[in-house]
Design a protein around this nucleic acid. Structure first.
Lengths: 146, 146
DNA sequence: CCAGCTAACTTAGTCTAGCTAAGTATTCGA
DNA sequence: TCGAATACTTAGCTAGACTAAGTTAGCTGG
């Protein structure tokens, strides 16, 4: 571990708490949690199976079962069956779910855009320039299903 | 909302899920949660009152009461009383708590530093350059007690 | 000066969201 | 064809968030 790596790690660590705080503020007064919004987003381009959803969101199957139960209870998704394999449960967005996804996403993006509006052009450029590095740092691709 | 602001907001929104996933992976196999580590960090430079802790962590008082109950149960903090105002409860780190904080912080920083080690010099520079903008974006100072 | 309001916590009860262990039904492979 | 593996659900635990309501202590205006 070089000094630079450690220093950056410390600096980022200091800010992680604020990221969590911002996420909470972004979700306040929304009728949907950020986890739910995230799952609805996974269903945007067609039905998915439970295993796929669990893998993509980095949780165990029972956690996803409970999450889908809540979303189904609220009428945002519907369970279905896979023709080829009778063990498989598929999940798809309902019309309500699609609306809720669009609304939630819009509010989230509006919330973030407001904050970007408070930055200078130079600061926005700096953030944009850091995005590829952020992707590598977060291991964006590692969490995808095979 | 300008096109740039909206675009950046969308890009960041896409990555927020991965931030949450990384945080979960960083906390896996640790004997302490990231919330607990965060609260212990607030106590590093001396005792704090419950209201101060709740404000700093953006939660309501009952949430902090429950959190401190868990930390006290595990022997990481101790409750005390304020001489001047008998309503006030103070919280301080125990020796065990201080050790646990150091260990947890070290693991977190190690975890992040490993990821920074996978970046190029240019990428690390880009991240470092974005830190001040990130602070403004996160509203780092807004969450402090007056 | 004390009665009543406010402030600082705690308790009780609810919800989301994570986990493991164990149960059921179905598929696949030797 | 039968036994192991796979896909999911159920049951039960914990952390961590909330509101509403209770307790105790400080403060203040008539």
């Amino acid at each position: 571990m070089t000094a630079t790596e450690r220093h950056l790690a410390e600096q980022l660590n200091l800010r992680l708490r604020h990221v969590v705080l911002m996420l909470r503020r972004a979700g306040a007064d929304q009728p949907i949690t950020s986890q739910q919004l995230s799952v609805l987003g996974s269903l945007e381009h067609g039905p998915r199976r439970m295993t796929g959803l669990a893998d993509e969101h980095g949780v165990r199957m029972p956690t996803m079962t409970a999450q889908i139960n809540r979303l189904e209870r609220d009428g945002l998704v519907a369970r279905g069956r896979d023709g080829a394999d009778a063990r498989v449960v598929t999940v798809r967005l309902t019309a309500t779910g699609r609306d809720r996804l669009a609304a939630g996403r819009e509010r989230r993006i509006g919330f973030l855009a407001e904050r970007f509006a408070n930055l200078t052009d130079e600061e926005r450029t700096a953030v944009a320039a850091a995005l590829p590095a952020l992707d590598k740092l977060l291991g964006t691709s590692e969490t995808r299903a095979p």
